[in-house]
Design a protein around this nucleic acid. Structure first.
Lengths: 357, 357
DNA sequence: TTGTAAGCGTTATCAT
DNA sequence: ATGATAACGCTTACAA
């Protein structure tokens, strides 16, 4: 006998398997002979205390028997939290991001969160669209790696009321928590290393203007040089943190005054530097000392292996996730500005200069 | 005057901004002077046709004015689709996965989907937990890269009714759609290249037993060798697709009969091969020709640059996403088994053998 | 400690 | 073409 479907037939009070699809909390309640709200309390670790041991047991058994799984959507609709965190990166293919995302995801998963990942392509419009979409999905928080300049990401998050944490780069006036590297210190390690090797004519291939990592590393470079009583031999800005931009900047540097060592703002740029060096019949290490920044995967395998500043990729993802969860748990808590301390990794791209000047 | 909170005060019928939090469809309805269901129809592209042009316009304006954003949770609860897709990878840090995930995410984002990413660590228990969690979040589909052996992933997806697509590896008896490489063909390209260079004593460093990529590449190796009228000089299985496993297998190979060329099952293993070679004072290319598989990022920069089989990383992610969306749209459609055709990339790790045997 | 009932924001069915 | 209403599955303030 066909029945009107919408007004769900309450059916016989006896325990019965769900007619179709997944079991709901009501099915479990029926099977356990208690009310749905009791099931909810028994199954939720936070409220389990309100329920008698025996009932908890009975409910758990019924739930297991029916293969009940909570609906994150239904719960989220009610509680206004989705147990979901969003991560925005410019481009997951850039090798510095996977370790960060991976570490964050692992920590978040352990805390019961699912992780949404999206690529912004450094495109503010796209970023805006992605943040809106994540807001629609009611993400509990957002981690943003290397937000592009001129982004409205922070304002958007604020408007949507989404707690956010910045990774890798800070943003000029933002009062958002951030987990970054101590870039000034890091670049100082490179300079000190080169000075220790006997270099006196040291140049800097800087990152793109306006980006916090570039600014801090440039300043750190100048500061460290000054501390050693030296002047920069040359300075050129790259147009972006890309291999191609590294090539262009390196060509510009070679057209200028001479230098025996080059402090580069990041490893990706170094790939471009190596390209140009190879094209000029020069060799990193032997003819020119080169240092990078990031110690991204496999720069230990390129030829010659790159001396660089190792950042704590995984710690960055972990700390950012922790900061975010803390902020979600206690929205009023003060923001954190965490600086991770990088270390120098010496490989074959740096040696003493051929001749002293 | 304090009021009871839960029974939401309907308030004056006049258009009024939402008291707090985001505007709902009811707020928009009030502002536009129509019923909520009309708003829903007007705002949903699929049902917009049911509503008068003028009303659509009025509703759209009201929605914009109130800054209304749809709630994916509420919609999902009702429609049983979350517009969310899950991607499972063993380890995002393995460089072959980011390009795949990135391409998939980009395509999915364009189709209005959000992408959940998680790392399984090749741990079946963890994988099971992650799939369950994604099921709780009601993912509309799941993409699984390199499912571990002995996994119950497929059964789980079936139980939860989640459409799934395999990437990179197939699974023995699975009738799931899969997007993989034509591994037999690919490895054949490597063999043909080496034979063409004059090699006659060719060995194979195979992948871990039981994995489809390893099996297909091993068979493809033997087949291509036979086609050239040759016998394998040696064959050793690696314990996994890791650098360490590559080292171990390479040591085993060096302990056996001699060979002038080595076909390795993947690039990551090649890193281990290079390590051992370096430790033995040998050089890839000069002393032993070596080929890899995957053309993962930066193997063009290692020393010597690796001759390898380039797979279509991005296409893999794209095709898999497309296949998944197709399956979601038409669950009854037949499964697809897509093989992407790889190509040979010749670099400095292969040359003619020093002397002919 | 447990039951009752309302409500989270949508969509879909029915009636008009 | 639009309105009324129930339902999606869960949580929680309140009552008992």
């Amino acid at each position: 006998m066909p029945q009107r479907r919408l007004p769900r037939d309450p059916g016989p009070p006896a325990a019965s398997a769900p007619s179709c699809g997944r079991a709901t909390i009501a099915d479990v309640a029926r099977a356990a002979g208690v009310h749905a709200s009791t099931v909810s309390r028994a199954l939720n670790p936070a409220t389990r205390g309100m329920v008698t041991e025996a009932v908890v047991e009975r409910v758990a058994q019924a739930a297991a028997a029916l293969g009940w799984r909570p609906s994150a959507l239904a719960a989220g609709l009610r509680t206004r939290r989705s147990r979901t965190i969003g991560i925005l990166v410019p481009d997951l293919v850039n090798p510095i991001f996977p370790p960060i995302v991976r570490a964050a995801e692992t920590l978040l998963a352990a805390q019961g969160y699912a992780t949404l990942v999206a690529n912004t392509d450094n495109d503010p419009a796209r970023e805006e669209m992605l943040i809106s979409r994540m807001a629609e999905h009611l993400v509990d928080g957002l981690m943003m790696a290397s937000a592009a300049e001129g982004t409205h990401a922070i304002e958007l998050c604020a408007r949507f009321g989404i707690p956010a944490v910045l990774i890798n780069r800070r943003l000029p006036g933002a009062s958002t928590s951030a987990v970054t590297n101590d870039d000034r210190h890091g670049i100082g390690l490179a300079v000190a290393h080169l000075v220790g090797l006997g270099h006196r004519r040291i140049a800097h291939l800087a990152g793109p203007p306006g980006v916090s990592t570039a600014i801090d590393r440039r300043e750190g470079f100048l500061e460290a040089l000054r501390a050693a009583g030296l002047e920069p031999a040359a300075m050129v800005d790259a147009a972006g943190y890309t291999r191609a931009a590294g090539q262009a900047a390196m060509r510009a540097l070679l057209a200028g005054p001479g230098f025996t060592a080059l402090v580069v703002a990041n490893d990706m740029l170094c790939l471009g530097v190596y390209d140009v060096l190879q094209g000029s019949g020069l060799r990193a290490g032997a003819d020119l000392s080169v240092t990078g920044f990031n110690d991204m995967p496999f720069v230990d395998l390129i030829d010659p292996p790159l001396t660089t500043i190792r950042i704590q990729h995984a710690a960055m993802g972990r700390e950012a996730a922790e900061a975010l969860l803390a902020e979600i748990a206690e929205p009023a808590a003060p923001r954190r500005d965490t600086r991770l301390v990088p270390e120098l990794v010496i490989r074959a791209s740096t040696r003493a200069p051929k001749q002293d000047h």
